[in-house]
Simulated scan of single mutants.
Amino acid sequence: MSASDYLASVRDRDWQQLESGTLRVAMISLGWWTREQAIPAVEDAEFCETTVLVSSSRKKATAAGEGIPSVETALTYEEFTDGEATDEYDAVYVCTPNALHLPYAEAAAEHGKAVLCEKPVEATRERAERLVEATEDVPLMVAYRMQTDPQVRRMRELIAEGAIGDPVGVHGSMSQQMLETVSGDAEQWRLDPDLVGYGASVMDLGIYPLNTARFVLDADPVSVTAQMRSVDEAFRDVPDQHAAFTVRFDDGTQAACTAGQHAAYTGHLRVVGTDGELILEPAFLGQPEQTLRLHRDGRRLEVADGRQDVMRDEMTEEFDYFADRVLREAPIGPDGDHALVDMRTLEAIYDAAETGDTVRV
């Protein structure tokens, strides 16, 4: 298949094998992301539906479920962990602050339920290892939504087919105005080291170019360097209001990435090869129109995404992929072992920023 044919088929679900079926999902934590992205995405999905909502109070969970016909039950966190209403859902979506992923994933595993856990899988490498071990008997997928994005999957295929020659460099960036777009004030969990983990920007944003580069290159990090700084008072407890880091992969490719929680709302991923380059922009933040471009031999091929709501469609793809794998009892990825590579890399990046050294992963 030619490069232009690859780009033309960008909307195909190359992963789908399921023809029918419904995975019933319990949503754990009802923050803005769950309410405004995950729940609407599941409503648009073909193979799953939201049946249970779990929050700090039944009142909050009940209110969030108004207008969603598929929702059957509202639970508190305690009621969920105690095992109430386990016959009303098949899987859970864990979208709590990072350091609270572990207890709810553990509870879901004890109830025999599949787990879709938001990235990063936990706040620290040690806690992530405990989570992966606790869920070894149930399906665990970590929610790297870019891996089910059709354009990202085409990037991976094009690179594997040699469309840009041998990959040599990756440039990736993601930034946002967190205090405006996420919570509107400084009192939020991404600024609390006890909840977020190592830091605010690389843990939350830099992980997107890091993991997406891993996916499209089919390669893993071997060493990193990093620089970080925090300037504003709101970021006094975290080291990385702004961050830049480099990654050397086991295929020899090198990546240079930036992330910032107090910068323009933007993102991109560029993979440069010996014979051309692939560019996905804007990327990661779900901004339409997302465009994939291939530059080679003086030619420019591109495909506009064509989606009215990129973020919701990325999330819908992710949930339907999860349902496809769980309902067919098929191997699932990105799984816990995959996520642990990121956790080791994140730990190394923060160590490198603190010491000024190149740190092996």
Rank of each mutant, 00 (worst) to 15 (best):
Y6V: 15
Q16C: 12
Q17Y: 11
G21T: 02
T22M: 08
M27P: 02
S29A: 15
L30K: 08
T34K: 11
I39W: 00
P40H: 03
E43H: 09
A45N: 10
A45M: 07
E49G: 03
T51N: 06
S55M: 01
S55N: 10
A61F: 02
I68C: 09
T76R: 01
E88D: 12
Y104K: 05
K113Y: 11
L116T: 01
E118N: 12
P120H: 00
R125C: 08
V132P: 10
V138G: 03
P139C: 02
L140T: 08
R156T: 09
G165M: 05
V168F: 01
M174L: 10
L179K: 00
T181F: 14
D194Q: 08
L195K: 12
G197M: 02
G199P: 02
A200W: 09
Y208K: 06
L210D: 09
N211W: 00
A213E: 07
A213H: 04
F215Q: 02
A219C: 09
V224P: 01
M228S: 13
R229A: 14
D232K: 13
Q254W: 11
Q261R: 09
H262T: 05
A263S: 15
A263R: 15
V271E: 13
V271K: 10
V272E: 15
G298P: 13
R299A: 15
D305R: 08
G306K: 07
R312G: 06
R325M: 12
L327W: 07
P334N: 02
D357Y: 00
R360K: 04
